[in-house]
Design a protein around this nucleic acid. Structure first.
Lengths: 230, 230
DNA sequence: TGACTTAATTATGAATTCAAAATTACGTTG
DNA sequence: CAACGTAATTTTGAATTCATAATTAAGTCA
């Protein structure tokens, strides 16, 4: 009746587009380690593609800052630096604040219920001290608010910057105290979303992002002071 | 003593990077018309390059939304739609507001003087009803504020979105009334920058962008109602 | 003539090839 | 044996080639 769906899935996007996604994943999960060279040949073999589409994908990744292209020396996975964090988080904050603002105007009751459900799941993860689950749900909440803003340009911009900050689980570092604070912030986020109070939600998201920035910078600084672990 | 600088300049960036810039220019100046197909072969001939680097450049341009890639049907120059304008301007507004906020914290007295000089030039252009000069200087002012914010991520994000809105001189359409208002807004922008009043500057830039959005949408709507001119 | 097939042509996506640059391996000399 | 210089190897950037999909042109039949 129909071909295997996998064939369709692979055929759906062009090769280079598929590769952009795959490479992004590898970089975010630090399977391609920050600061290392992108092993072009190896990846071609692994994905079973030629260098042409892979290199096309690398150009795209370079344009969003996930890799750096050095003339005649290939592509290198970029590292998250303190300077970069200080730059990206304020921008991300402004964009998330806008998403909150817009979401309050456009979100449906059903969508609010979805966020509430996610929020409760997240709280459960907090109780269980299950950091992986907490982060996964956390991201879903932010994405849900972004979706409710009904602005694909905003979505794209936000996600591009988020990706850069998501690398190597940098965000997964939380002290007990920071985790508690983050949870409190999320209570406010839900409250203002339910109340559809745009300005207050925007302000809270901005604070939330700023607190995250401080936490990440602190961790990077501690990391820097520590001798490199293999 | 040294090679011709042009050789250096050409050698500095890779071919695909150079092509990204060139194609961007062609699209912004509508030499590649919105809605038309990107003439791959012709451009290769004109630039004297093979398809490989040109196609790499097209993938990058697609990722920022200046072209759309249709599977097996090539690259098409995207059109500025009303929906897109309604999406992009709020995001650009949030980013410019942030740039104003940050600029007030970081701008030097010398830089403020530069902006003031640009502002005066722009006013002169307004007196002379020289729209081209006005727009050129206008952009320089916004860029100067952006530079003063000292945030390259913000700069990149802003410029990517600005590019999309700059296409085909859409912004160059102004009624006499809108032009007057824009000039008033710019007086406020300068005033708050000089006073280093971040919040007020941010708010003014936001309003400025919103007014621009309305003006552009109005023009697009009028355009839509008009039978197509060659 | 005008709609529909089918064949020729062209354009696209991706693999391959090739020249030039960078890296590595090796040998030489102080 | 350590530093330098040179040759072999690998990698990179870009041109070329090739299979396939899309478009155009030509031919057929009502």
């Amino acid at each position: 009746m129909m071909q295997a769906t996998e064939t369709q899935t692979i055929a759906r996007k062009s090769l280079h587009h598929e590769l952009v996604d795959r490479l992004q994943m590898l970089i975010i999960n630090a399977e391609l380690a920050p600061g290392t060279k992108v092993p072009e040949k190896l990846l071609c073999d692994q994905f079973g593609v030629s260098r042409t589409p892979l290199r096309e994908a690398l150009k795209v990744l370079a344009s969003v800052g996930l890799v750096r292209l050095e003339p005649n020396r290939g592509a290198w996975v970029t590292q998250v630096t303190e300077d970069e964090v200080e730059e990206v988080f304020p921008v991300l904050g402004a964009l998330e604040a806008l998403s909150g603002e817009l979401a309050c105007k456009r979100i449906t009751d059903a969508e609010i219920e979805e966020v509430r459900a996610l929020h409760e799941q997240m709280m459960q993860s907090y109780e269980n001290r299950d950091l992986d689950a907490y982060f996964s749900i956390n991201q879903k909440i932010h994405r849900a608010i972004l979706m409710a803003a009904r602005n694909s340009t905003l979505t794209t911009s936000c996600q591009a910057l988020s990706l850069r900050m998501q690398r190597a689980r940098y965000l997964a570092n939380m002290t007990e105290g920071r985790w508690y604070d983050a949870v409190q912030e999320h209570e406010k986020i839900l409250k203002y979303l339910v109340a559809r109070d745009g300005p207050k939600l925007a302000a809270t998201l901005l604070d939330h992002m700023d607190a995250k920035r401080i936490s990440v910078v602190r961790w990077l600084q501690a990391r820097e002071a520590t001798p490199e672990v293999s």
